[in-house]
Every structure is written in C-alpha cells, then in structure tokens.
Lab assay of single mutants.
Amino acid sequence: MATGGRRGAAAAPLLVAVAALLLGAAGHLYPGEVCPGMDIRNNLTRLHELENCSVIEGHLQILLMFKTRPEDFRDLSFPKLIMITDYLLLFRVYGLESLKDLFPNLTVIRGSRLFFNYALVIFEMVHLKELGLYNLMNITRGSVRIEKNNELCYLATIDWSRILDSVEDNYIVLNKDDNEECGDICPGTAKGKTNCPATVINGQFVERCWTHSHCQKVCPTICKSHGCTAEGLCCHSECLGNCSQPDDPTKCVACRNFYLDGRCVETCPPPYYHFQDWRCVNFSFCQDLHHKCKNSRRQGCHQYVIHNNKCIPECPSGYTMNSSNLLCTPCLGPCPKVCHLLEGEKTIDSVTSAQELRGCTVINGSLIINIRGGNNLAAELEANLGLIEEISGYLKIRRSYALVSLSFFRKLRLIRGETLEIGNYSFYALDNQNLRQLWDWSKHNLTITQGKLFFHYNPKLCLSEIHKMEEVSGTKGRQERNDIALKTNGDQASCENELLKFSYIRTSFDKI
C-alpha cells in the first residue's frame, strides 16, 4: 500500500482533458527560462521544448504516446526543470519506465491550478516501474492521483506527508504495488545497510526511497516546507523545498512566496507586481503582455491589467481597466465587458449561442446573426445582446428569417469595421425574408467608422429604411451602385405612401 494514499474509496472516473512563447529569463536562482504550460502528445517531438525550461508557468501534460519505446527515452533528460506552477499529468506514455532521468531536479509542483483537485496525476502508464522524482520536495496545493499503472512499484516507500501538507485526498490505487509483488529495495538494503531515512506512518517504520538508488530526502521537522541542505541544516524561511546553503534567500532552489532578481522575498516591493503567484514583474512586463494579447485571437491570451499590486489576466467583477495605466478602477454604474472572439468572429444561430455573449459591452471581433427560429426570440436576444455598444469588426445579418427588427441591439452605437466582410463591408444584410426595420432612427444613433453597407434580398425592408441608415451611420456616399439592390429590397412591402385627393359631386333626387 502506498504510504499516505487512500484505498478502496469510491472515486469519480478520471477524465483526461485534452506555445513556446518565453516569458522571460528567471535569473540567477533558476538555471534556465520560464516556459508556458505545455500539452505534449502523440510523439516526442515537442518534448524537446523543455530543454531550457527551469519553470513551467502553467501545467505540463505528457500523454497518448503509443509508439514510443524505452530506448526512445534513454537520452532524454531535462535537468534544468525545477518547478511547475500548476500540475504534472502523465497518461498512456508507452515505453517510459521512470522519471528519474527525465526530470531529475523537479523540486516543486505548486498546484496553482489543479487537474480535478490533483497536482500530480500518473494514470495508465503501462510501462512505468517507478516514479523516480527523487528531488520532489513540495506539492504546495492539491493532491496526488496514481492509478492503474500495472508495473509501478516504489510507492509504499514514499512518505507523501513530507511532500504535501495533507495526504487525506491522495488516491493511489490499482498499481502493481497493490499486489505486494514489488519487493522494493532501498539503497544499501541488499548489503544489509540502512542508507535512507525511515519514518513512521500508520504504525509502520519504513525506509523512504524513490528507487533502488535514490533515497527520499527527509528534512528535520523544524525546517517545515522550506527544505534543508545535504547536511540537514534548514533553508531560509522564504525558500521552498530545498537550498544549497542554509538561511540564505539567494540560495533557495525555489521560493515559498515570490522570486525577485535572484532572491526569494515575502512580497513584491514597489515598483514590482505579483505575477502568477510566484514571481515579481515590473510595469513594462505587464504592459507588454497586455499589448501582445490586445489584437491576438490565441486562446488563453489575456490583456493583463494591474489590481491590488498584482498583474492579473482581467479586472475583477465591479472594476474596469483604465487604459492609460492598466489599473483596475471601480465602475460607475454597470461595468464594461470586452469579449474577445477566439477566431475573430462568432455566429449567433440560437439563443444558446447568444447567451455566451451575455453582459458583453464591447465585441472584439465580428458578429454573424443567422437565426431561423426560436421561442420568445426578441426578448431572449435583447437579454443577451442588448448591452453590446461596440463591435470592432463587422455585423452580418444573414438568412435570419425569424427577425423582424434589429432593435434587440438596443445599445449598439459603434461598428468600427477594423475587419470587413469580403474585404469591403462593415454591415452586411443578406436574404432576411421578414426583416422590416433596422432601428427606430428617431431614437437610435449608430456610427460606422469604416467599410460599406450591403443589402440584398431583404424583400420587406424598404429602401427608405436603408437610406436612413446611410445618413445616420455616416456611410452615405461610400456605397457603390450594386451594394444596395434596388429590386430585391422592399419588393414585397408597401414602401411608397402617396396622399390621394378626392373630389365629389353631391346629387339628390331633384338636383344634379
């Protein structure tokens, strides 16, 4: 039985969820670079991206490699990797027998973001014989899940209580170790020597080791999670996991709180800001991140802002960003909400898709409305799209047979046209069989910064309504002859009103 693990408890099935942008060198404390989270699957090609990484700022997932063999891993080693800020997950990587050479110096898994409450997941690794993470000293947050690894031993010899604050939620089941077939031998045991430290858990006094050649490092209890030197002297209180010299914040392997210019500090002093819960960055760093993602459509890219001495992905609820200094300031009234469309555009074809934009005031991208039916549609669209004030790209209304009016965009005031449909149009209306009105132009103002209007096959939309939009939106004169079809717009509506004058002759039985 794995020490510190839980057996036999019912657990939810383990679901495996399925960018080499360097964020800056980590400095003297770390020998390499800070790398983003990685999802490495199918083959070993991307694994080489770990070569210079000291910190993975995010998670590391290595999974679904069915053609790899043990010899493929023999020359692979990433000794610079010290810390993973989120979680480490391995799933069905064939041929991998140990992690001792792959990650010989991995010391800390912070667990800032977890995989279903777990910071370390080893699942269905069919050839893994031992973990071998002999320098792993601290899992700051989260638990361990090690399950269905039929060859995995050296679990009962690990004292997880020396690595985690609590072992109650560890789930370590259905491994070879369960069948008591392992016969784990710690260093020196074969020669009758006791080389590794022994600890007591559940009444068992057991030597602690990761492999037959690597003991588990056990520091004096007084050192807590700070770690200790090879001689057993406690590291500085700002260290986490390990250090090369005692009581020196510049000799830590990793930091308990924050890293700044080669030393570990309790908090980031001005003019620095907390970033990702582990390091200090200056304003320029946060500003660069903001600008890199301002026009990016890459998933996970955030326009970072500053709030409460932190550089964070977005302002919290009730705050909006001051564009001059990136500071989050309290909103006066309802907060603006910028919604970034991942692929640059979004099609609204149902109430469900409209709900995804609920509360958005600025759309960074283009909207395509293609709704053919739905219950209580006008009210639903207004509830979900009615706060949109600005669209950076274009607005396209296409084959939306259920629409009679666009009044559900009740606050839309600006279409920038930074991206144009077919390279020309910022407003595009095609084949809307029941569209009769755009907006009530006596109450609604709309500016279209650039781009043209396109109207074709809107049989109940009168040309007068379209011409009014040209005047109000500032697009009059931009359109070419064929942009607004004269014969297919309003051709099934009563669009022309003329005053009919009647004269009559009164007659009676005795007068003409």
Rank of each mutant, 00 (worst) to 15 (best):
R113C: 06
S296I: 09
L332E: 15
S296M: 08
N295Q: 08
Q204S: 06
R69M: 06
H212A: 10
L164P: 00
L44H: 05
Y272P: 01
E51I: 14
I139K: 00
T250G: 12
C264G: 00
G232W: 13
I56S: 02
C328H: 00
K67T: 05
L63K: 06
K294G: 13
K217E: 08
Q287L: 14
N135G: 12
Y273A: 13
L164E: 02
F103K: 01
Y87Q: 00
Q299L: 12
I139F: 03
G300N: 07
C311K: 03
V173S: 13
V218L: 09
W160N: 01
R41I: 06
Y30D: 06
C209V: 03
I158Y: 02
C215K: 03
E180S: 11
R69Q: 06
I139N: 00
P187F: 15
G262Q: 12
A230L: 05
M321W: 15
I163D: 00
N138R: 15
L289C: 08
D277R: 08
T189E: 09
T199H: 10
P187N: 05
C280L: 00
K67D: 06
C209T: 00
V34P: 10
T211V: 06
C223K: 00
R141A: 05
L106P: 00
N309S: 08
L327R: 11
E71A: 13
E151R: 06
T45L: 13
C243F: 01
F205P: 04
L155A: 04
A198H: 06
D169M: 14
N135I: 01
H28M: 05
D177G: 13
I56R: 15
S324K: 07
L240F: 06
S77I: 13
Q299H: 11
T320L: 09
D169T: 05
R208Q: 10
I62D: 01
W278Q: 07
C182Y: 01
N309D: 14
K148Q: 06
S324L: 13
R113T: 11
R297V: 07
G142R: 00
I306S: 06
K292S: 09
N308G: 04
F205N: 08
E151S: 05
L81P: 00
G203T: 13
R298V: 10
L326W: 02
C223A: 00
I306P: 06
N202I: 03
G333L: 02
R256K: 09
